[in-house]
Design a protein around this nucleic acid. Sequence first.
DNA 1: TTTAAATACTTCATGGTCTGAACTATCTCG
DNA 2: CGAGATAGTTCAGACCATGAAGTATTTAAA
Lengths: 160, 160
Amino acid sequence: MHADFSDSWDLFTPEVQAMMGVFALHWQLEQRLIDASLGEQLGRSECQLLLILARPRRMGELARLALKAPSVVTAAAATLEAQGLIRRVRDARDGRAWLLELTEDGQNRRQQLVARASAVFYETSGLSEEEAKLLAGLAQKIHNKAVQSGAVGPCEGDET
Amino acid sequence: MHADFSDSWDLFTPEVQAMMGVFALHWQLEQRLIDASLGEQLGRSECQLLLILARPRRMGELARLALKAPSVVTAAAATLEAQGLIRRVRDARDGRAWLLELTEDGQNRRQQLVARASAVFYETSGLSEEEAKLLAGLAQKIHNKAVQSGAVGPCEGDET
DNA sequence: TTTAAATACTTCATGGTCTGAACTATCTCG
DNA sequence: CGAGATAGTTCAGACCATGAAGTATTTAAA
């Protein structure tokens, strides 16, 4: 159809162009990832958490990394736990905090999700593997910066 | 801040890394753009529409380009019109369709928004101008592809 | 010309997701 | 021990998007 920007993409500044690409990719990824995850009750937050959980993390950490409110993580964790994908363990170093870690099922499920995400990524972005790596490089900078600005918190002692 | 991935970013595949950067940037941009637009009643959709409206477009076109349902565009257009930022004109070539075009106020508002978006973009992404251009290049491919897959329409051949 | 089907947009009810405030439990420090 | 900070939880309300049904207009066939 004639609904692309081939005629007027140049009317946008590079920054706006970048934004529109980001919006488009984000929308497609979320949409198709969730559609693909049907059969289980995984929503957006659950998928995102699963992706981030490459290794055990505290819930507060997860909230900051996913740029979500803590209450969202609580809800998502409850869902994931109910499906046996994660386990909650008290943080030995701070009895207030929970560590979320993947069960064996969770690890399998995560692998599937990562594979699915890669496929969807290439399908919807149309990028080559090299371009994807390029984007990944930019992404690291972006994500780090975003997490920092999002993390308004003055140093809390959750580190040591 | 201890909540970054400096310790484990490499645990993710490049595709997942890219996704996480995209998610982060998208979230920040939407959030901060809307916060900045307070004082007027501009929501996410309204901002997005304003950005796309570099030149008059039909509502259906806008829906496809923004990857939203037509009803969302209807609602957003009503808001923008109520604020005097856009004007609705019947498409001379098809009396069923409306063309949305910016009023003079709308053009000013759009310029502000673009400027604001650029600022927010650099602040939250931490990218250089060159990197932004790089990202913009990838973005065009992405957006085109996304719009195409989204446009399931029985529309005649834009090849493919 | 008349009529049926397709298209562009609108309206509305519904559901999903996020936010923010108030709450419990635990830790830290004096 | 007690005050204040921090980690997580709960819940109500707002926001946004979806999808089905409705109106107006065009297109094309009878």
